[in-house]
Structures are given as C-alpha cells and as structure tokens.
C-alpha cells in the first residue's frame, strides 16, 4: 500500500484553502505550517510569461531519511495506510528528522517540544474521509489514494496525465518521494528547484 497525495498543478490556483483546512483540522499552532503553497515563477519573457503554484508538505518518501534519523523510533511507517507518521508520545524534540528531511516538510513545535508534519489527516482516514486539504480544495487539484490501486483517484489521475507530465520534487538524496505533481507544458514548464 502506497498512499500519498497527488497534486494537479494545472488546477491549483494558489487559493490557500488547503493551508487553512490543514490548520483548522489539525489545530496547527500559529506560525507553524504542515503544508504550504509556494509560487514558482513568474518566468520567461513578455509576452510568454508563465508560473505555477506548488503546494508542498510531507512527500511520504519511500526511503524516508527522517525515519532512519529518528533515535527514539517516534517517526515510523504506519502499517494501516503505509504513511510516515510521528508518535508524539515518543518524540523528544531532538529535531534530527528536521535536519534529515530534504524537503523541509517538518516543523518544530517549541511549545510542545515535538516535531510535527502532515499526517494526511490520518484521523479522517480512520473515519473513512479524505484528508482535509483534499476535501477542501476548491478546484479538485489535490487527490489522495493508493498508488498501487489502479482504481484509486491518484492512480487514475497519473494514468490520464501521461508520464511526461508527472513530476517530483528534486530527489538529491535518494529519498524517492511518493507525492507527485501533474503539470502539463501547456500550463507551465516544470522547474527543477534543486
């Protein structure tokens, strides 16, 4: 089972609904973000200007460096959904995982002395619902599901988009992020951000 988010950048308008939904659903403290919407661009020369919104959060890596770096075993791969999660009881706030994450997806909660990140709203998954960011995305740009299930929303979206339009964040350390982005050249050219 390889559950993850797939984000269709052709549809993303940068409205920040996902950011608001995440903070509301997970009671994320002020100043802390489990997901963010970044601007890539504008680039090119007038009149051919292009750009796109790039939402980022935990990439649910296959070879999660955070899991290996955690000395207490607080970061683990959950058996039920195959997601990388944090056991808050075990986390001692040493921030080794923050240092290890190549995508800057983790944040330190000073008040609680623990590290936090996107959980794909595992509490909603337990209730048979989709993650809050997926549910609240106005344009349907965010999808969640099992990459190994051909009938899942994410697998269907990837198949429909075609291989050349599927992108990943730069993987300099062999982390193999699961989360992928759909972006057609007609919308904008994918920028390798490394």
């Amino acid at each position: 089972m390889r559950n993850c988010l797939v984000i269709d950048l052709d549809r993303c308008t940068g409205c920040d609904s996902c950011v608001a939904a995440c903070k509301h659903e997970n009671n994320v403290s002020l100043g802390i973000y489990w997901n963010r919407v970044n601007v890539v661009g504008p680039s090119g020369e007038w009149p051919r200007i292009e750009g796109y919104w790039l939402p980022t959060q935990c990439q649910q890596c296959e070879n999660a460096a955070c899991e290996a770096a955690c000395p207490t075993g607080a970061t683990y791969r959950d058996e039920k959904y195959g997601l990388i999660l944090i056991d808050k009881e075990k986390c001692i706030g040493c921030q080794s995982c923050i240092e290890a994450c190549p995508f800057g997806a983790r944040t330190y909660n000073e008040e609680l002395n623990i590290v936090e990140k996107c959980t794909c709203c595992v509490q909603r998954l337990d209730a048979g619902e989709k993650p809050a960011c997926v549910h609240n995305c106005c344009t349907g740009a965010r999808l969640f599901g099992d990459l190994d299930d051909p009938e899942s929303d994410v697998a269907k979206a990837i198949a429909a988009a075609g291989e050349e339009n599927i992108h990943w964040l730069p993987d300099a350390y062999g982390a193999s992020p699961r989360t992928c982005y759909i972006l057609h050249a007609s919308t904008a050219t994918w920028k390798e951000l490394a």
């Binding site: 608001a20 994320v28 403290s29 002020l30 963010r36 970044n38 490394a194």
Partner: peptide, 22 residues
C-alpha cells in the same frame, strides 16, 4: 553545515505565498 538550508527550502522561503491564515 547541518543548519544550512537545502536549496529547496531557500527557494520556498523566498517564494512562499502570503498566507491568509495563522
């Protein structure tokens, strides 16, 4: 060296969309 942001974070920090919340 450990505290040095990876390139990706630097780009994100520079381009982060002004958020309406939090």
């Amino acid at each position: 060296l450990a505290a040095g942001n990876p390139g990706l974070n630097l780009i994100f920090a520079a381009t982060q969309h002004a958020s309406l919340v939090g």
